[in-house]
Design a protein around this nucleic acid. Structure first.
Lengths: 153, 153
DNA sequence: GTCCATGCAAATGATTTGCAGTATC
DNA sequence: GATACTGCAAATCATTTGCATGGAC
């Protein structure tokens, strides 16, 4: 995470942006739990523990910037909130292979790495002339724990 | 489309819902352009041409019902609007193989049929114990026309 | 006649924005 | 010291909801 923090500061400098403590705090929250998918409000609550005077608008503004810089990814579960997770340092390659599994029972979000879609993208280019540059894949279903709880009863 | 309309009326009857003219008009708009992805506002405008006194709230309420009945599919392009398209009559099988290609240049939405993901879902079940029941796949990139316009210049 | 559905207006709620003060470079 | 950033409050805007009236069965 220290490495990521340095990378973040580097990015900021390159873009002529300032390294404020709020900005760093927000980044740290995201980086501290790489597998969690935070809501803007959740980030706000988390940052407020250390930084009680921070405003929600600041969180939103920084999330947006982080997203523009490509350091965090958006995830929309269609429940009215946009969620954010820290991106993989080796991101261009990583994001493409990173899918989300969403449990319909407990609401948990899991990630799954795979590159099978590459073939599909080739096929799309061949048949449709559509050049894929990115994708978003969500699988809905039942996670191991919930599936077992169901069959176990 | 007449077949679909009958099917819709049938659904309504089974659920004890009433076949109002507004309800039918909304359904017809969706069914008249199966490949188009309508915004609630767009449906509203379209229906208003024939039914000037209809209210936006009625459109929203019926879209929601249609969606519950499984007759239309939601599509979220993360631009602040939820879009809707009529579902395939043979839907359970169809939806699963229906992906969206979104052009980053012209904003067009295309569909692509494929069943490659079945393998991926088996793999997910084997390695994660996660049982997939549905998925949503979006590909972002450049459609044929826009890609050609770009290289042509 | 009973309920469900409609239309309108008001409410909701996540996100954005304006502005005056504040901190970073 | 200039400029970007922050916090607050107010504004936005798609979608939802309350309520009285109207229509389907």
């Amino acid at each position: 995470m220290d490495k990521e923090l340095e990378r973040y500061k580097q990015f900021l400098k390159e873009k002529g942006l300032k390294t404020t403590s709020q900005r760093l705090a927000i980044f740290k929250v995201l980086a501290s739990e790489p597998n969690r998918h935070f809501t803007a409000e959740e980030i706000y609550e988390k940052v407020k523990q250390r930084w009680p005077e921070i405003g929600l608008a600041t969180v939103y503004r920084n999330i947006q910037k982080l997203s523009e810089l490509g350091l965090i990814d958006k995830l929309n579960l269609d429940d009215g909130f946009v969620r954010y997770e820290i991106g993989d340092p080796d991101r261009d390659k990583a994001r493409h292979h990173h899918h989300h599994l969403i449990c319909l029972d407990c609401g948990g979000v899991f990630t799954f790495e795979d590159d099978l879609l590459e073939q599909l993208e080739d096929r799309i280019r061949e048949t449709m002339g559509f050049i894929v540059s990115d994708h978003e894949v969500k699988f809905y279903g039942h996670c191991r724990a919930c599936a077992q709880a169901l069959t176990g009863e």
